[in-house]
Design a protein around this nucleic acid. Structure first.
Length: 423
RNA sequence: GGAGAGAUGGCAGAGCGGUCUAAUGCGGCGGUCUUGAAAACCGUUGACUGUAACAGGUCCUGGGGUUCGAAUCCCUAUCUCUCCGCCA
């Protein structure tokens, strides 16, 4: 959520930045400022009247103490009339605040200065490319055939148990998943991230704080009986650790990592790119999250990108890093880098990580602040990234490393998997 | 699931209708003393809103109510603890 003061201080600049994200309702900016003026006016009326009530009430207390009951009764009459006014102001204030809130949560985060303009994924900028695309043998096949050949993922039975998009990992497939999770967590904790196992369901307040609610409601599975949401990413519970928190400056930066299954309804996105592990409703992911001082957040973003890059390199996968254009960025992000690995048998790039700086857009909703050296309260900045999402990594590993005699396991993963070849 | 108790500032904890501008202790910060530190002593110490700055307003788990006036009384939700039941 943007801060109203940012809009007030420079509405023209805010509109320019919003336009980079292809946000159309620029008139909201002015509407919000007008509503905020109104809010202040009503608040001030309310405060003044309430102040009279408070003063009179104290006076009544004194008069009662002195036994001047008649004078006290007279004042009570007067207070009653103030109270009617107070109630009116309060009602009007609530209405205005709600309107203001409704409008301000519609504004996406402002993109950073270096975000490229553009509307579609095609306009993302390739910031870097690395690794070597493999040359496959003549009979190479996509991963959805490989998983059948080696009997490691069973979509049909998953569909029987739950529904389509809920894969059942089996045997060496299950073990490879476990190996990847274990390796990713070890890699992240070695870099100073503290490991968490969070709740996999969250309440509405948490989903709201990280921006899943209200607008992405339909993307989450919702347990209505208890009003809990299945998490679409560990970002939600882990970031919410620091909801309504005031940190000390020397506690920053906070570095956290967590494994979790991720549940996504993917409403509206079906019929496209959904074969095999390319898009599923439940998948495993290891996430990294940082909460940092504002002036450091872009350096931290670079460090997180480098961290993920090394992880992908360590598994010898061909990859590229995209700087997302305004139109392809998420609602909450100020700058995002996507990582894609090349899936050789599909001849496609698959997104495996998305690393973003949210600046104070999330922490403003979270109310995650810290006291700086001058004793001033400031919002922290939050960042997160996948390190990494498993299904597409698995797809690329299977496809790129296939041989006539099995799937070669990258050296770094062999101790975790317990073998050099999956057969 | 049943019965009972509770939720107060960073923490512990008092307060049980007006003097709460929330005692006290611990912790934090500043100072005195000291070569330096500790101890001791002195001072200071929340958030939000609002203002040019004051003033003012709000906040004692959330929501609602009683009252001229609520941390305090009532209702309700949530959470925590104890006991019982069930259970990996």
């Amino acid at each position: 959520m943007l801060q109203v003061n940012v809009l007030r201080n420079n509405p023209q600049w805010v509109k320019e930045r919003l336009a980079v994200k292809n946000f159309k309702q620029l008139e909201l900016v002015d509407e919000i400022i007008v509503l905020d003026d109104e809010r202040k006016r009503i608040q001030s009326d309310y405060d003044n009247t309430q102040s009279k009530v408070n003063a009179a009430s104290k006076e009544i207390g004194k008069l009662m103490g002195q036994g001047k009951k008649d004078e006290a009764d007279e004042m009570k009459q007067q207070v009653s009339s103030y109270k009617i006014q107070v109630a009116t102001f309060m009602e009007s204030l609530n209405g205005t605040e709600k309107l203001l809130q409704d409008k301000i949560i519609q504004l996406p985060n402002l993109p950073a200065q270096i975000v490229p303009p553009g509307k579609t994924p095609e306009e993302n900028v390739v910031a870097k490319e690395g690794g070597v695309k493999p040359t496959l043998h003549a009979n190479a096949v996509p991963h959805w055939d490989l998983i059948k050949k080696y009997d490691i993922v069973d979509f049909e039975t998953g569909a029987k148990i739950t529904g389509s998009g809920f894969p059942l990992f089996k045997g060496k497939g299950a073990k490879l998943q476990r190996a990847l999770v274990q390796y990713f967590l070890d890699y992240n904790t070695a870099a100073g991230y503290t490991e968490y196992i969070p709740p996999f369901m969250v309440n509405a307040a948490s989903a709201y704080a990280t921006g899943q609610l209200p607008d992405k409601e339909g993307q989450m599975y919702h347990a209505t009986e208890d009003d809990f949401y299945l998490i679409p990413t560990a970002e939600v519970p882990v970031t919410n650790i620091y909801r309504d928190t005031i940190l000390k400056e020397d506690e920053l930066p906070l570095k956290m990592t967590a494994y979790s299954p991720c549940f996504r309804r993917e409403a509206g996105s079906f019929g496209k790119d959904v074969r095999g592990l390319n898009r599923v409703h439940q998948f495993e992911k290891v996430e990294i999250i940082q909460i940092v001082k504002p002036e450091t957040s872009y350096d931290v973003l670079d460090a997180m990108v480098a961290h993920v890059e090394k992880l992908i390199q360590s598994m010898e996968l061909p990859y590229r890093i995209l700087r997302l254009c305004g139109g392809d960025m998420s609602f909450t992000s100020a700058l995002t880098y996507d990582f894609e690995v090349f899936s050789a048998a599909q001849q496609r790039w698959l997104e495996v990580s998305s690393v973003s700086n949210f600046e104070n857009f999330q922490t403003n909703r979270l109310k995650c602040r810290f006291k700086d050296a001058n004793g001033k309260m400031q919002l922290t900045h939050s960042l997160n990234g996948s390190s990494l999402a498993l299904p597409r990594i698995m797809a690329a590993l299977l496809e790129n490393n296939q041989t006539e005699n099995g799937i070669n396991i990258p050296t770094i993963l062999q101790p975790y998997f317990g073998a050099a070849v999956l057969q």
